[in-house]
Computed example of a mutant assay.
Amino acid sequence: MKKQIQSIGVLTSGGDAPGMNAAIRAVVRAGAYYNLKVFGIYEGYQGLIENNIKELDARSVKNILNRGGTILKSSRSEEFRTEAGRKKAHQNLQQYNIDALVIIGGDGSFTGGHIFSQEFDLPIIGIPGTIDNDLYGTDYTLGFDTATNVVIDCIDKIRDTAESHNRLFFVEVMGRDSGFIALRSALASGALDVVLPEEDSPMQDLFNELEKGEANQKTNKLVVVAEGNKMGDTFWIADQVRDKYPHLESKVTILGHLQRGGSPSCLDRVLASQLGVAAIEGLLEGKSKVMAGLIDNKIVFTSFEEAINKKIPLNKELLRISKILSI
């Protein structure tokens, strides 16, 4: 039997991603459109436990569409991992008569939401907010497009110095388990090579690419390295190259949290708006324990279990094209 929903809570959890604010805005305004009360839960699951909850209306979310980060703040909560913590969180929801939740975050956030929904029969829909683009059930996650654009902008600047001084730069990007940012930014920047978590490449493969680049008189000496690659730490990789090719002046740049910040791209703003409305409408239709996503420009709902546990394969075609064009 479909549960009657009159009030909805929305929170952001885990690492921040550009587009989260646009998603919050969409959830709040779609809720207002359907005559629902919407409550913002500040600082993620920890805020839910600490009763950091405030009602929002359409005007509460003005002028946030273009802002990076999250106005609701985010945190990681060890207490929410406990049964007692989740019980306290549910009691706070009952205090505000909140009937359902929209969770904006990644796999860890959805894991917590899935357990919470099962324990208290609470309808929950997730919106994928992570720059890694590593959730099954959507072509893109919020923040991925913006993050890759930030990486490209940084690499374009680094290239100026690399070419001016004939230096080799290793640029480390985020991607502990996923090489999506690394691969796409390597292709878009014309990098000499890319080192990915999904590829168990030996050091000799990198040496081969460097030698091929020199033989072809390639001036763009840039290698993009995903932080979670299997080859090794980026500084260690650079040291191996220095030892073998002393004539190459090798430098390392770690972009780090630069990739998380900044105003969201048009793609991320539109995606966030689509998924925010879809989450509200999905809850009203009786959906729960699912993630709203976009595949082939169509809204789809994927179970939390699939979104979390199914792995997205690396786009081998992009890797192949990158190798062809790096000559």
Rank of each mutant, 00 (worst) to 15 (best):
Pro197Asn: 05
Asp200Gly: 01
Ser201Asn: 14
Ser201Leu: 14
Asp205Ile: 02
Leu206Gln: 02
Leu206Met: 10
Asn208Cys: 09
Asn208His: 12
Glu209Cys: 07
Glu209Trp: 01
Glu209Gln: 13
Glu211Arg: 12
Lys212Gln: 13
Glu214Phe: 08
Ala215Asn: 12
Asn216Thr: 05
Gln217Lys: 15
Thr219Pro: 02
Lys221Asn: 12
Val223Ala: 03
Val224Met: 09
Val224Phe: 09
Glu227Trp: 00
Glu227Met: 01
Glu227Ala: 00
Asn229Cys: 11
Lys230Ile: 01
Lys230Leu: 14
Met231His: 09
Met231Gln: 12
Gly232Ser: 07
Asp233Pro: 08
Thr234Phe: 00
Phe235Glu: 14
Phe235Ala: 12
Phe235Met: 08
Trp236Gly: 02
Trp236Met: 11
Ile237Trp: 00
Ile237Leu: 10
Ala238His: 01
Gln240Tyr: 02
Gln240Cys: 10
Asp243Ser: 14
Asp243Tyr: 08
Tyr245Ile: 06
His247Met: 10
Leu248Ala: 05
Glu249Leu: 12
Glu249Ala: 12
Lys251Tyr: 10
Val252Lys: 03
Thr253His: 06
Thr253Trp: 07
Ile254Val: 15
Leu255Asp: 11
His257Trp: 07
Leu258Met: 15
Gly262Phe: 03
Ser263His: 05
Ser263Lys: 13
Pro264Trp: 01
Cys266Pro: 01
Cys266Asn: 13
Leu267Tyr: 13
Asp268Glu: 04
Asp268Phe: 00
Asp268Thr: 01
Val270Thr: 11
Gly276Val: 02
Ala278Lys: 04
Ala279Tyr: 05
Ile280Glu: 08
Glu281Ile: 00
Glu281Tyr: 01
Leu284Arg: 09
Glu285Tyr: 03
Glu285Thr: 08
Gly293Ile: 03
Ile295Thr: 13
Asp296Asn: 15
Asn297Lys: 13
Ile299Asp: 09
Ile299Pro: 11
Phe301Pro: 09
Ser303Asp: 12
Ser303Lys: 11
Glu305Asn: 13
Glu306Met: 05
Ala307His: 04
Ile308Glu: 10
Lys311Cys: 03
Ile312Val: 15
Ile312Ala: 08
Pro313Thr: 10
Leu314Pro: 04
Leu314Arg: 02
Lys316Leu: 15
Lys316Thr: 13
